[in-house]
Nucleic acid binder design. Structure first.
Length: 415
DNA sequence: TCTGGGGTCCTGCGGCTG
DNA sequence: TCTGCAGCCGCAGGACCC
C-alpha cells in the first residue's frame, strides 16, 4: 500500500454508494450487475436511488420516474423499503462509532467523522478510512466511499470525486489548487439558481469566485451566502463535526396522485399529516410552538402559512385545528387545484418543559392520554391500526377505495 | 421533462415596543 | 403627546441539501 499524504486531514466523509439500490441488490442477488431503480410506482414519484448500471443510461436521483423508465426501460423498479434501509444505516453508524464518538450523520447513508482522537490507536486517517470501508463491505455486503481532508467541505468533495467504492485524500495545503478548476456547482450551497446568478457575473469556476471581490458577491447573493462561498472557494470551512444535532422542525407532506380542489379532501389530508407530525413529535418527546402549512398549486407555485400558538403542543387536535384555520385563511380553500399539502411543526421544545394551559371545557389531559394510547397501539400494530373515522376511506371495508386522490407511490397502505 | 419528502438556512417585510 | 429609531419577533418565500 502506497503511503498517503494525510497528515492534518482528520475529517472523514463516508458516503454509501447508491445506498437504497445497493441494499436491494444485496437482498436479491439475482439483480446483481443489472440496472435497478428504487422509487415509487405512481406517475408522480421520483427516483430515490439507482444502481450504477442504471446510471449509465442517464438515470439520476430525484429524476421523475416517468423519465427514468423511458431512459432505461429494462431496469427493475423496486418500491422503497425504508425500514430495511434504516436498519442497515444503524449498523453502519455503529461501525463509525466504534472508531470515534465524533460522528455526525447527515442522512441514512452518509456521515462526517472526526478521527483526530483515534489516530494514535488506529493509525493514520487513510488507514482508518480503509478499515471502515472493509468493515462495511464485510458486515453489510455493500460498498462506500470515503473522502479525507482537513475540513468537512473538502472531505465531502473528496468522497464525491472518488465514487463509487473509492477513497481519496485531499492533502492539507493543496485544497486551493484542487478547487480552482472545479465548476461553481461543486461548492456546497450552489444550486441551479445560484449557478445562474454567478454565470451572469461571469463566474464559472471556483477559482473565479475566489478571485472575485467579496462586495460583488454580496450585492447579488446577500452577505451570508457571499461570505460562505468565498470561504469555501478558498478551501476554508470552520464547521466542527457535531455528534448531537438537535432537530429544529418536524413535518409531513403529501403529493396527490391527481390535483385536488375539494376542501373536505384537503382537510382530511391535513388530519392525516397532522397525525404523522404529532407522532414524530411525541416519539422525540417534543412539542412545537409554531405550525406551518404548505400548499402547492397545480402550476407548482407554493405558498406557506404559519401561526404561532400561545404554548407549545404535540396534540393532534390542536395542530389539526390550526392547520385547518390556516388553510381556510389562505384563500385557496375550495378554490385552487392543489397537488401537494404539508404540515410542519417548528420552534421545537422538550415536551417536559411545556406548560399546560387549560381553558374551561378543554379536555387536554384526556386527549393526551388517548393519543399516548394510540401511539402504543400504532407502535405494535402499525400506524393505521387505529385512526379517526374521517380517515377511513369510502368502501375500505369492501376492499375498494374511492379516494383516488390519496393513492400514491405504491405505499398507500403504509402511511 | 415535469418535477417526492424530509429537512435547514437566509432574506425581507411589517408590527410591536422601549 | 408625537416622532424617529433600533431591535426583536412573527411571518412568508426562496434556495438548497440528501
Amino acid at each position: 500500500m502506497r503511503p498517503v499524504a494525510d497528515s492534518g486531514c482528520h475529517i472523514l466523509h463516508v458516503d454509501m454508494d447508491a445506498f437504497y439500490a445497493s441494499v436491494e441488490v444485496r437482498d436479491r442477488p439475482d439483480l446483481a450487475g443489472r440496472p435497478v431503480i428504487v422509487g415509487g410506482l405512481s406517475g408522480r414519484s421520483v427516483v430515490l436511488s439507482a444502481t450504477y448500471q442504471a446510471r449509465a443510461f442517464g438515470v439520476r436521483s430525484a429524476m421523475p420516474m416517468s423519465r427514468a423508465r423511458r431512459l432505461c426501460p429494462q431496469a427493475t423498479i423496486i418500491p422503497p423499503r425504508h425500514a430495511a434501509y434504516g436498519a442497515v444505516s444503524r449498523e453502519v453508524m455503529a461501525i463509525f462509532r466504534a472508531v470515534t464518538p465524533f460522528v455526525e450523520p447527515i442522512s441514512l447513508d452518509e456521515a462526517f467523522l472526526d478521527v483526530s482522537g483515534a489516530i494514535r490507536l488506529l493509525g493514520s486517517p487513510a488507514t482508518i478510512g480503509r478499515r471502515i470501508r472493509a468493515q462495511v463491505a464485510e458486515q453489510q455486503q455493500i460498498t462506500c466511499s470515503v473522502g479525507i481532508a482537513e475540513n468537512k467541505f473538502l472531505a465531502k468533495l473528496a468522497s464525491v470525486r472518488c465514487k463509487p467504492d473509492g477513497l481519496l485524500v485531499i492533502p492539507a495545503g493543496t485544497a486551493v489548487e484542487f478547487l480552482r478548476p472545479l465548476p461553481v456547482s461543486a461548492l456546497w450551497g450552489v444550486g441551479e439558481k445560484t449557478r445562474q446568478t454567478l454565470a451572469r457575473l461571469g463566474l464559472r469556476t471556483v477559482g473565479d469566485i475566489a478571485a472575485a471581490p467579496l462586495g460583488v458577491l454580496e450585492r447579488d447573493l446577500g452577505k451570508a451566502a457571499a461570505a460562505h462561498l468565498h470561504a469555501l472557494a478558498d478551501g476554508r470551512d470552520a464547521r466542527p463535526v457535531e455528534s448531537s444535532v438537535r432537530e429544529k422542525s418536524v413535518g409531513a407532506e403529501q403529493t396527490f396522485e391527481v390535483d385536488i380542489s375539494d376542501a373536505a379532501t384537503v382537510r382530511r389530508e391535513l388530519l392525516r399529516l397532522s397525525r404523522r407530525t404529532t407522532r414524530a413529535l411525541r416519539s422525540g418527546s417534543l412539542a412545537a410552538r409554531t405550525i406551518t402549512i404548505k400548499l402547492r398549486k397545480s402550476d407548482f407555485t407554493t405558498i406557506t402559512r404559519s401561526r404561532t400558538l400561545p404554548a407549545a403542543t404535540s396534540e393532534t387536535q390542536q395542530i389539526y385545528a390550526t392547520a385547518c384555520a390556516l388553510y381556510a385563511a389562505s384563500g385557496l380553500s375550495g378554490q385552487a387545484r392543489l397537488r401537494l399539502v404539508g404540515v410542519r411543526a417548528v420552534g421545537l421544545v422538550p415536551a417536559a418543559t411545556t406548560a399546560t394551559q387549560l381553558t374551561l371545557g378543554e379536555r387536554g389531559a384526556a386527549w393526551r392520554d388517548a393519543e399516548s394510547a394510540l401511539d402504543r397501539i400504532s407502535g405494535r400494530f402499525g400506524p393505521d391500526a387505529v385512526r379517526p373515522a374521517a380517515l377511513i376511506e369510502t368502501g375500505e371495508a369492501g376492499g375498494n377505495s374511492a379516494d383516488v386522490g390519496r393513492r400514491r407511490h405504491g405505499q398507500a397502505s403504509q402511511d
